[in-house]
């Protein structure tokens, strides 16, 4: 199995003038293609920061972030934008759908930015809507949808360009329990089909039930990295987590 995501001594400090602890502190880890990895930790542990760095939404203060062979630190803003279109799909906790676009238009947006051929893109969108059981909502606006429905739309939007990597930041945080379960089953289903998933959650039960690997962050550092047995064969060539000397 190939390494899809690699963080090497990544540190991220926010310039809030307080001179406090870094959000991420010399973190190194690797995620293989096809893995379902959950990032856990208390509030302020750096989970969302790590996800943002992997998505190319932010840049590390030190270290290197490599995704699909691209060193994100070397990319310009324009190339990062193209990277985000084609290599990652991002699902946010609060959905972050665009309120003035319909469901279908929200789903199509990344593909349209990617200048995809309309016929192909349209077919892909319809396929995703059907897969996520939201075909009937295509012409509705997000304000008229429930939380669960909005999150399904967000997942469809994230997958429109068939990105190798799906990132999800607390995807069940803003929905009810039943919807949350459905969403996690959806994501797990995608992973079974080969989608690499990196998911942030504070819910340990959810993480252990669905993810094959759980990385725990505390105070910006990797505190634990555990793989769980799954029904499928465990990949052999995974790179293990490198924990800094002083933390061992």
């Amino acid at each position: 199995m190939t390494t899809l995501v690699e963080l090497t001594q990544v540190t991220k400090t926010y310039d809030d003038g307080a001179g406090g602890r870094p959000a991420l502190d010399a973190v190194s880890l690797a995620i293989g293609s096809g893995e379902f990895t959950a990032i856990m930790g208390p509030s302020g542990s750096g989970k969302s920061t790590l996800l943002n760095l992997v998505a190319g939404l932010d840049r590390p203060s030190a270290g290197r972030v490599t995704v699909a062979g691209e060193d994100l630190g070397r990319l310009s803003e324009a190339r990062l934008a193209r990277f985000r279109r084609s290599e990652v799909g991002f699902v946010f906790q609060f959905f972050n759908l665009l309120g003035n676009l319909t469901v279908l238009e929200n789903v199509l947006l990344p593909a349209q930015l990617h200048s995809g051929r309309p016929a192909q893109v349209g077919a892909r969108a319809k396929e995703l809507l059907a897969r996520l059981d939201i075909t009937g909502l295509a012409d509705r606006y997000p304000a008229r949808l429930s939380g669960g429905q909005q999150q399904r739309v967000a997942i469809a939007r994230a997958l429109i360009n068939r990105p190798p990597l799906l990132l999800a930041d607390e995807p069940t945080g803003a929905v009810d329990t039943h919807s949350g379960e459905q969403i996690m089953e959806l994501i797990e289903g995608l992973n079974r089909e080969g989608q690499t998933v990196l998911l942030v959650t504070h819910d340990a039960k959810l993480a252990t039930r669905h993810a094959g690997r759980v990385i725990t962050l505390i105070d910006g550092r990797v505190d634990d990295d555990t793989r769980f047995e799954s029904s499928g064969p465990v990949p052999e060539s995974l790179v293990t987590v490198r924990i800094p000397e002083e933390q061992r």
Binding site: L57, A81, R82, R84, R85, F90, N96, P110
Partner: peptide
């Protein structure tokens, strides 16, 4: 959000 989904 648009930047996040790939708008340059």
């Amino acid at each position: 959000i648009m930047k996040a989904v790939g708008m340059s």
